[in-house]
Design a protein around this nucleic acid. Structure first.
Lengths: 210, 210
DNA sequence: GTCTATACTTCGATAGAC
DNA sequence: GTCTATCGAAGTATAGAC
């Protein structure tokens, strides 16, 4: 294996992820990305042709990977309530390996998808679609109430993204005594509990009470 | 009233809100803000001294206003479950008058609060604090289960912010047939329903069943 | 308070040698 | 595939007259 670490394109993508997450598309500097990736700017443009091309390549790959994880869960044999818990866990786990994901997702939503082309939009759409498939199995099994799949998606994903992405702000607020602390484990537990209750089909009324 | 419309500082704030929401802090252009506000750049700097100063002034005011709305709800005499519904409605209504709010909030979270000074952080912290007060009244009344107030805050606010801010992306996805439509009314109804179930204290087991 | 004109800086992108 | 050097555009901010 003569290749020392990672090849240039991968190193560039990793550096771009950190930079875009921390500063946003407009705030990101191509020079900084190149420096972090230990390549020069010309190399970066050689592989990705523009700042925009680099951004889209990064997001397309990330969206598809994330959607793949959710699709795997939806197709698993577990009972639906367990799939929901697993989805929450899986999203948090995904973020462990892709620390830049929440920030970039939040930013792109806020930006209205301005920087995305058709191909990247397709990849983005795969994420809620995979989650909807998961919810559908619960509805078909009669254990979830009839929530709109997209409403369920936002109710599940948005708190996770915002909680994780807000870690630095929450740390600042906590250290200044402006906000109580909340550990990831406690948050995940609370959220899983909330979602189970939120989506559960109402217990059927007993046939003859009393 | 000789003054034609709004005074310069207010027009500048309004223009800044639109620009920062659409493009983010780094993407926002002082020239564009000045042009939209129908003042020149020098005027803008005269009133707000810097791009950063303008941004902070805008956010501080918005955070305090939003926190004020929630604090008013928490202090109302309504039953807690009704306060929760009202909080969801109030957040959506707030956004109607402050269309820029969701994008800016999402962006600032993603950015880690980098652009905020102590004073603006104080204003930001007032928002979850007001919501926690609302949740506390429900817990004290015994009708909410013991969720962490901050977890409840994220579970409530994040879906609303993301749903609203994602309107442009969702429109693009819907029009390309990549995603089902979801009206604001349907979303709000689903979310209110979900949150009522999610936070409700479990019904006490009947003393002597059968 | 309001304007025009401009100084100074930084950024995305490329040319061209190796 | 990799580098150095650099160009032109665009950005924040200010000077100075009114």
């Amino acid at each position: 294996m003569p290749r020392p670490l990672k090849a240039s394109p991968e190193r560039i993508l990793a550096a771009a992820a950190a930079e875009f997450a921390a500063r946003g598309y407009a705030g990101a500097r191509v020079d900084r990305i190149a420096r972090r990736a230990r390549v020069n700017k010309a190399m970066l443009y050689y592989h990705f042709s523009s700042k925009q091309g680099l951004y889209r390549a990064l997001l397309r790959g990330t969206f598809l990977e994330f959607a793949g994880v959710l699709a795997g869960l939806a197709a698993s044999g577990e009972p639906p309530a367990g799939k929901l818990d697993a989805a929450v866990r899986a999203m948090v786990a995904f973020v462990d390996g892709h620390a830049y994901f929440p920030s970039i997702m939040l930013r792109e939503v806020a930006e209205g998808g301005t920087h995305l082309d058709a191909e990247t939009l397709d990849a983005l759409a795969a994420v809620p679609r995979a989650f909807a498939a998961l919810v559908a199995t619960g509805r078909e099994a009669g254990v979830f109430r009839p929530v709109h799949p997209l409403a369920a998606y936002f109710t599940t994903v948005a708190p996770i993204l915002m909680y994780i992405a807000s870690t630095p702000v929450r740390a600042r607020l906590s250290s200044r005594g402006l906000q109580p602390a909340l550990s990831t484990e406690a948050f995940i537990g609370d959220l899983q509990h909330s979602l189970r209750l939120a989506f559960a089909a109402p217990a059927p009324a007993p046939r003859s009470p009393r």
